[in-house]
Simulated scan of single mutants.
Amino acid sequence: MTRTFEQAIADFAPTLPLAVAYSGGADSTALLLACARKWPGQVAAVHVHHGLQAAGDDFERHCRAVCATLQVPLVVQKVDARHAPGQSPEAAARHARYQAIDALALHGQAAVQTIAIAQHADDQIETLLLALSRGAGLPGLSAMAAQWQRAGLTYCRPLLQVSGQAIRDWLQAQGARFIEDPSNVDERFTRNRIRARLMPALQATFPQFRDTFARSSRHAAQAQALLQEVAAEDLARIGVPPDIKALQALSTPRLANVLRHWLLGVHQVTPTSAQLAALMAQIAACRTRAHQMHLKVGQGFCFRRGKVLDWYNPRPLSPCSNPSCP
């Protein structure tokens, strides 16, 4: 159920000390201000300078000024968030942000236990709609988690049940200053088109859509968690790397499930739907000693090695000296 900003902050109980991912925009400004008031002396801010806009230096100066006023320590991390060919600019920037925050924790530059991110209910719906537009499975339809672990830190999104408008209303009542990132209204980006065009239409047609869509995402997350448990049990039984005959004994949905789990959990690879379908067809056809497999999956290849299925990435090693390579 959608909540007020005050309710969300009242119920937020992170392990301290806490750092807020602070861009200088309305959402992160509200979260930083509320947390600094609730836990004085226990809150820091982390600002990631993406190096993508000429205004980036102005954003940094604004964040420094606000943190000085709040007497909140600020750590600025500069990254190169330019996207690679075929990668979305949003994904590249997001990856760079998390890497920067992880680096602070790993190198002891930020003595924090928890990182708070100001993504809210509207962001959650936009993420779900993006996933639907791409034909995503349960992991994508689960949208954004409220809490997770990464690089020894606990990440939290305490505002996921608060609308963007409710956050701005609270911030306006405080008279707090924030910056408007011009890239947030650039409709060349799909998320911004969703925000500008679809969200108002959904509000007019389904006034409770934030609650009902978020409920669907929670159902998807529960189903995905169950599939993860089943996949872990199956993989423990068939071995790592997986035994081909044991894979052939699984039903089609269960085979797809355990292959995704193995590739992602062991090799950090997510196959496309076409790659997974081709791999499953080859597993089904592998009935003789002479049958060979060598299929592109992610940035590497799945191949047959004796009785098992394996995966390797040829790029780090040239020529390939990895004993797993065929």
Rank of each mutant, 00 (worst) to 15 (best):
A91S: 10
A103I: 04
G86S: 06
G164A: 05
V112L: 02
A131T: 09
R97T: 12
D122R: 01
P89K: 03
V79R: 04
A84Y: 06
V76M: 05
K78H: 14
H120K: 01
I117G: 04
G86D: 03
A92C: 01
A136M: 10
H95G: 12
L160W: 02
V72W: 00
Q77E: 15
Q109C: 04
I115K: 09
L129Y: 01
G164N: 06
L159I: 08
A166Y: 00
T69H: 11
R157T: 10
G152T: 04
L128S: 07
K78W: 00
L159K: 07
R97Q: 11
Q149R: 12
V76D: 08
A96S: 12
S142C: 10
Q161M: 05
Q124A: 11
A91L: 15
P85L: 05
A116N: 06
A116I: 06
R134P: 00
I117R: 08
L74T: 07
M144A: 15
H95N: 15
L104T: 00
V76S: 14
A111Y: 02
A143I: 09
A93I: 09
A68S: 09
C156W: 13
H83M: 05
A103K: 07
G135Q: 10
T69W: 04
D122T: 00
A105W: 03
Y155W: 14
G137M: 10
L153P: 10
R82N: 12
Q87S: 09
G135M: 14
Q87K: 07
T127A: 13
A68T: 07
A92M: 04
A110R: 05
P85I: 07
V112N: 05
A81L: 07
G140V: 14
A84R: 15
Y98S: 05
T154E: 11
P139E: 10
A121N: 03
Q161E: 11
L130W: 00
A118R: 02
H83V: 06
R150C: 06
K78G: 08
A84L: 13
P89Q: 01
A103R: 11
L153G: 06
G164E: 07
R97M: 15
H95T: 15
A100G: 13
A121T: 01
L138D: 10
I115H: 06
